[in-house]
Design a protein around this nucleic acid. Sequence first.
DNA 1: TTACAGACAGAAAACGTTTTCGAAAATGTT
DNA 2: AACATTTTCGAAAACGTTTTCTGTCTGTAA
Lengths: 341, 341
Amino acid sequence: MSFKKIKLTDIAKIHHVSVSTVSKALSGHSDIKLETKRKIIETAKKLNYVPDFYAKGLRLQKTFTIGVIIPDVLLYFNSTVLKGIIHTAKEMGYRVLLSESEHHYKDEKETIQKMMNSNVDGLLISINKESDNIDHILKASEHLPIVLFDKISDKIPLTKIVVDEEKGAFNAVEHLILQGRKRIVHIGGAKNSYSSAQRLEGYLKALKKYNIPIDLKLIYNCEEVTLDEGYKIAQILLYNNIGFNALFGVTDNVAIGAIKALKEKKFRIPKDIAVAGFSDSEKAMIIEPNLTSVSQSGLRMGKTAVKYLIEEINNPMDVRTPRTIELKTTLKIRKSSSIHR
Amino acid sequence: MSFKKIKLTDIAKIHHVSVSTVSKALSGHSDIKLETKRKIIETAKKLNYVPDFYAKGLRLQKTFTIGVIIPDVLLYFNSTVLKGIIHTAKEMGYRVLLSESEHHYKDEKETIQKMMNSNVDGLLISINKESDNIDHILKASEHLPIVLFDKISDKIPLTKIVVDEEKGAFNAVEHLILQGRKRIVHIGGAKNSYSSAQRLEGYLKALKKYNIPIDLKLIYNCEEVTLDEGYKIAQILLYNNIGFNALFGVTDNVAIGAIKALKEKKFRIPKDIAVAGFSDSEKAMIIEPNLTSVSQSGLRMGKTAVKYLIEEINNPMDVRTPRTIELKTTLKIRKSSSIHR
DNA sequence: TTACAGACAGAAAACGTTTTCGAAAATGTT
DNA sequence: AACATTTTCGAAAACGTTTTCTGTCTGTAA
């Protein structure tokens, strides 16, 4: 650790000027003579000078750091958004402090508190499960700018970046209908989840548009959107002899789990049962047959979230008008739903 | 933003004492009378006081922050390690600053520089591609503790956390041999990658142990370890009519890509060709048949890396003895390699 | 009594910046 | 030559901590 970080005083001594002069020169202040500026900037560059983040943060009360809180980095879509966030933040000169809420309300609350103490300039949050208790977020939002993304709650009056889930689901289901299917099962997610509700809405609207009666026996719910739950629910469907010729999963995972169960019972996909999922994960291209899925760009979402957050950081608005930005989805049609592919 | 962060002076005023007294009381200094301490601590708790991270960082020259640099959050194993890092860091009272090198030497270098300027207490790095140029890391390591994980270079004398790749590969190949296969293809990774070299070594050792002659025609390399490259190389193998009855992919991705090509040509797996991969990604359970794979615990790796880093941070050793910690792997045997499952 | 130790608290410096304010020097205007 | 203006720079305060040093007040031993 035999290393001396170089600071303003060092440069000041070299040129026999004051620290203030050096500081101003480096920040391009008009106070300083061009010639002096040039010299100072030159040696600063040569000595590889970089301002001390903590001194700067202390003085300016601004840290160029944004905090990111997500439930679980392992979820593929979360990783994608994170990638977008990291990239855009770097581009715009911000650092990112990352934390997981690990699906627990308590962790989320604590983490938010810690982030605030860390003097982050703003917070990017993907909410846990839609618990009814959102006070901690509301309270935090009085202290610093917060933008919500992906998993949100419509009860929180903050800027939100989401995917147009309803439209995405609608497109998927419409596609299934256009393949000639009318008995379409929907396996939905947790009941208090905003996303799940939106996707269910899309499903219902598509049926309505084509005058297909809604059969509640075709609508199921799972708590965790895992392979396993998809698998089990499909088994229940088969066991109960519910007649159906298509299935729309709230998630690729549940769709893929369902496919497994269907294949085990020798149903042909898509001939007997056409299947579609949501989120277009990598697995969609691995499962046989490849899964038709609603594709949402996490990169885009991450990028958008950062942009809006930084905008709010820079505009110290007293009255903030929360906006909801809906990102478009695209339907990736693959073999699981379409015989002609 | 109508909010006043509470600071030492506030508490000081309330109790008509000086800031120094408050500071000492809160840090449990023996200078302060027990009664005074009690009172101060109480109001601090009530007012939800938390020390300013930046003031503290500036004064103490320590930030309780570790920087993490990985090539790509989207790689599943990277995410797992990251999860382990986040969790353990939080547990030990550290924050994590995350950045991606995005597979570029330039980004890696710049990021390291930035992290150093950010006054992180230590750095956790998973190296890019094993470029020959590692000067930037060596140089940085003179300034602050660095621990390498997963993707490393044996040319860098630093503490490293890796998986016992050779042993893992050995086990996988031995398993294939014990299934009665002798013509085993190996699709390896980039030639200058340390991991790939280790896995190749394991492959060779297993063959040697069972007196199976090494046939160079069975050994291939790909630059990027993607589905696509695995797919293409398998096609080349088939096109050239190389006779083989097993395949060991350097990665689940290339193994799965290969399986795709093999299945297209109606080869039965594992009957005609047994396949194994490395890393036990989620996809291993999706592909049909499920892929036998070497499982490595990313969580464990992340946890270990953080622990060693913090140890180095706390022990300001002048002469650091670099250690290499090798984590054990386990072979997950699935249908792609074993008829009896 | 004096001397001294221990308990308790405050003043002030320091960490490395940025910025306000004012001073001095250079320039321009009569 | 006198004054006004602009250019160029520096002193010093401030951001919120921690810590060293100093000082006052007890009580106790000589």
